[in-house]
């Protein structure tokens, strides 16, 4: 089919392997993502905290720098499980904002332009299509979450010595697994929203709503019934419990409050967090529902029976 010949011809060369074909989708999608100045700016902003964390680690181990700055960072901020859990929380929040900007058009744009039949008439399954779209989010979020998290961990290990590394080796798993669960949740949820809402702005709004409305509702329930059970309605709270669990910081006894009892005497109530397994269950259920929604919605053509 040479340009000058204007003839139709089949492709005679060797085709690339079938298993890796879905990776073509993120390659093209990432190119589009980095065309947006807003996204590039947000992507760069996501590295601010890792940079701050790296500086803190450096200062922690550099007496000269500490004395020059007249700081006592070692006492203020120990580099331990809490430090890395805070890292997860902050980067988790940044990655959520990044997802709100990246994910909504991923499937919705294909749906509104009827592009799905074009993908699915090729040797590409629906699962591979979703995996391809998911890979865009997974790649970008990985770059701003567990990758800098582990780099900071190893930076700290290089400064803290072998003993510190040996004592905290388990944190590698906690950082990687904690972020992975978060990334899977965000990507499935955002793709499910993207598959249901054709307009980008509405999809972004829906994604924000799915996080903030249940969280607000959870706070209301917690306030009204003097409980922490409402946290199960909030994906953010459930994720926080999971992260605390992974870093060995989860304590069911969250707080104590004083309240007036039946005989008008003040009593102390112990506020119990929902059990850790319940938080895992909530996240697993949300993921399962998202997968089900994607199975229903990602089709070449919708069939009305």
């Amino acid at each position: 089919m040479a340009v000058y010949e204007h003839l139709y011809s089949a492709f005679e060369g060797e085709k690339h392997s079938a298993w890796s074909r879905f990776l073509v989708i993120p390659r093209y999608a990432l190119r589009e993502v980095f065309k947006s100045k807003l996204l590039v700016t947000m992507f760069i902003l996501c590295f601010i905290y890792p940079l701050v964390a790296a500086i803190l680690v450096y200062l922690h181990h550099n007496a000269n720098a500490l004395s020059m700055l007249q700081l006592n960072v070692r006492e203020l901020l120990p580099i331990d499980a809490s430090f890395f859990r805070t890292f997860l929380e902050i980067q988790g929040a940044f990655s959520f904002i990044l997802t709100v900007l990246i994910a909504p058009p991923l499937i919705s744009r294909d749906l509104s332009n009827n592009a799905l039949p074009l993908y699915l008439c090729r040797p590409l399954s629906r699962t591979e299509y979703v995996l391809g779209k998911m890979a865009v989010i997974v790649f970008l979020l990985s770059v701003v979450t567990w990758v800098p998290g582990l780099l900071i961990f190893f930076f700290q290990a290089s400064q803290g010595g072998f003993d510190w590394l040996w004592a905290n080796l388990w944190m590698i798993w906690a950082i990687f697994f904690g972020f992975t669960v978060w990334i899977i949740l965000l990507s499935l949820l955002s793709l499910a929203v993207s598959a249901f809402v054709k307009w980008r702005v509405v999809a972004s709004g829906a994604l924000l709503g799915l996080f903030f409305i249940p969280s607000a509702f959870a706070q209301i329930v917690n306030g009204l019934f003097i409980t922490h059970a409402g946290n199960l309605m909030s994906m953010w709270a459930s994720m926080n419990s999971i992260w605390r669990g992974l870093f060995g910081l989860f304590d069911r006894q969250a707080a104590t409050v004083r309240a007036r009892g039946a005989n008008r005497q003040m009593i102390e109530l112990v506020m119990m967090e929902p059990p850790l397994w319940a938080s895992w269950l909530v996240i697993a259920l949300v993921c399962a529902v998202c997968v089900w929604l994607l199975t229903r919605k990602v089709r070449a053509y919708e069939v009305i029976g």
Binding site: F11, R21, Y28, D110, N114, P117, L118, P123
Partner: peptide
């Protein structure tokens, strides 16, 4: 049926790659 915000040559190229080229 097309992929929005993509030049035609990139659109056709993407389709070719998805077919294994």
């Amino acid at each position: 049926a097309f992929i929005a915000k993509m030049s035609c040559v990139n659109f056709v190229r993407l389709m070719a790659e998805l077919s294994g080229i």
